[in-house]
Simulated scan of single mutants.
Amino acid sequence: MKMLDTGDVRLHYRVDGPDDGPPVVFSNSLGTDLRLWDPILPMLPKGLRLIRYDKRGHGLSSCPPAPYSMGALITDAERLMDHLGVRDCVFVGLSIGGMTAQGLAAKRLDLIRAMVLSNTAAKIGTPAMWNVRIAAVQEGGIEKLADAVMERWFSAGFRATPELELWRNMLVRGEDAGYAGCSAAISGTDLMAPTSGLRLPVLGIAGAEDGSTPPDMVRETVDLIPGSKFHLIRKAGHLPCVEQPEEYARVLTEFLKGVGHV
């Protein structure tokens, strides 16, 4: 575990694998920390430089006062990658992490040679919807939203297992200000124009039972980029890397090989 002080936030990050390995950067969803990727990492090819981090207000990173902007989240990722000397990575972003990926690719294409847009979109929800959720967190904490979030995150089958408690605990033990701050960032973001101008290899991944970013929403965003690919994972919700890690790792590995990153 390591910490980078960027000046306005301290980012917790972790690097696994050789320093000279092809870099793969992971950016996780709202309400989760870098442990989101634990289920798939052992199944990925050896020799990769696997970089994970907790975005501001999440995990072990510091929690500046809300609200946050998408520009700030993109700059956080940019500064971390510059600090680590990362160039030409494959960037894997899930949900808000996928929005970060799109914005970063539009800003610094030297950092990203290919990206995976998982359970995400160029625009997610409406400001009115996010304002309701932010108000709920401010009034009653994340706990007030937790059951509804679990329904959007996971399939009915997974919600019936003991493992659900792991992810519910991760959510509710997070910082209220971090959740509200990142919600505000999503609320104010529409990346349709910059994403439609991107020209790089892209894989879209969707969960068939995703209540946050349904498959059609993911496909619409991925289709903005010519030559992109799309994969639907069944029996999975918003976090298919948790519910179907074997399939997720297989599809990601095939993409890495297809773009010559392995």
Results as ranks from 00 to 15, higher is better:
residue 40 I to D: 02
residue 40 I to H: 00
residue 40 I to A: 00
residue 41 L to W: 04
residue 42 P to I: 14
residue 42 P to Y: 08
residue 43 M to H: 14
residue 43 M to T: 05
residue 43 M to F: 12
residue 44 L to W: 10
residue 45 P to Q: 11
residue 45 P to M: 11
residue 45 P to C: 11
residue 45 P to H: 11
residue 45 P to Y: 13
residue 48 L to T: 10
residue 49 R to N: 07
residue 49 R to T: 10
residue 50 L to K: 11
residue 50 L to C: 08
residue 50 L to F: 08
residue 50 L to V: 10
residue 51 I to Y: 00
residue 51 I to V: 15
residue 52 R to D: 04
residue 52 R to P: 03
residue 53 Y to E: 03
residue 55 K to G: 11
residue 57 G to D: 14
residue 57 G to T: 12
residue 58 H to Q: 13
residue 58 H to G: 06
residue 59 G to P: 10
residue 60 L to V: 03
residue 60 L to G: 08
residue 61 S to E: 04
residue 61 S to Y: 12
residue 62 S to H: 06
residue 64 P to D: 11
residue 65 P to T: 14
residue 67 P to V: 11
residue 67 P to Y: 09
residue 67 P to I: 09
residue 68 Y to H: 05
residue 68 Y to Q: 06
residue 68 Y to T: 09
residue 68 Y to M: 06
residue 69 S to A: 14
residue 69 S to L: 12
residue 70 M to W: 10
residue 70 M to C: 09
residue 73 L to M: 15
residue 73 L to A: 13
residue 73 L to W: 04
residue 74 I to V: 15
residue 75 T to M: 13
residue 76 D to H: 05
residue 76 D to G: 12
residue 76 D to F: 02
residue 77 A to M: 13
residue 77 A to Y: 09
residue 77 A to C: 15
residue 78 E to Y: 09
residue 78 E to M: 12
residue 78 E to K: 08
residue 79 R to S: 13
residue 81 M to N: 07
residue 82 D to K: 14
residue 82 D to H: 15
residue 82 D to A: 15
residue 84 L to Y: 11
residue 85 G to E: 15
residue 85 G to H: 12
residue 86 V to C: 12
residue 86 V to L: 10
residue 87 R to M: 08
residue 90 V to K: 02
residue 90 V to M: 00
residue 90 V to H: 00
residue 92 V to D: 02
residue 93 G to P: 04
residue 93 G to V: 00
residue 94 L to R: 00
residue 96 I to G: 00
residue 96 I to Q: 03
residue 97 G to Q: 04
residue 98 G to K: 00
residue 99 M to T: 05
residue 100 T to K: 06
residue 100 T to W: 02
residue 102 Q to G: 11
residue 103 G to A: 08
residue 103 G to C: 08
residue 104 L to N: 05
residue 104 L to C: 09
residue 104 L to W: 01
residue 106 A to L: 03
residue 107 K to C: 08
residue 107 K to V: 10
residue 109 L to A: 15
residue 109 L to Q: 14
residue 110 D to G: 08
residue 110 D to R: 14
residue 110 D to M: 09
residue 111 L to V: 12
residue 111 L to S: 05
residue 111 L to F: 06
residue 112 I to P: 01
residue 112 I to R: 02
residue 113 R to S: 11
residue 114 A to Y: 02
residue 115 M to S: 10
residue 115 M to I: 01
residue 115 M to A: 14
residue 115 M to N: 02
residue 117 L to M: 10
residue 118 S to L: 03
residue 118 S to C: 13
residue 119 N to H: 15
residue 120 T to W: 00
residue 121 A to N: 09
residue 122 A to C: 14
residue 123 K to W: 05
residue 123 K to A: 12
residue 123 K to L: 07
residue 124 I to T: 04
residue 124 I to H: 07
residue 126 T to I: 05
residue 127 P to V: 13
residue 128 A to C: 01
residue 128 A to Y: 08
residue 129 M to I: 07
residue 130 W to H: 10
residue 132 V to I: 14
residue 132 V to N: 12
residue 132 V to S: 11
residue 133 R to A: 03
residue 133 R to D: 07
residue 134 I to P: 02
residue 134 I to Y: 03
residue 135 A to C: 03
residue 135 A to Q: 13
residue 136 A to C: 04
residue 137 V to H: 02
residue 137 V to A: 08
residue 138 Q to N: 15
residue 138 Q to W: 02
residue 140 G to Q: 07
residue 141 G to K: 01
residue 141 G to H: 01
residue 142 I to G: 10
residue 142 I to D: 12
residue 144 K to V: 06
residue 144 K to F: 00
residue 145 L to Q: 08
residue 145 L to A: 09
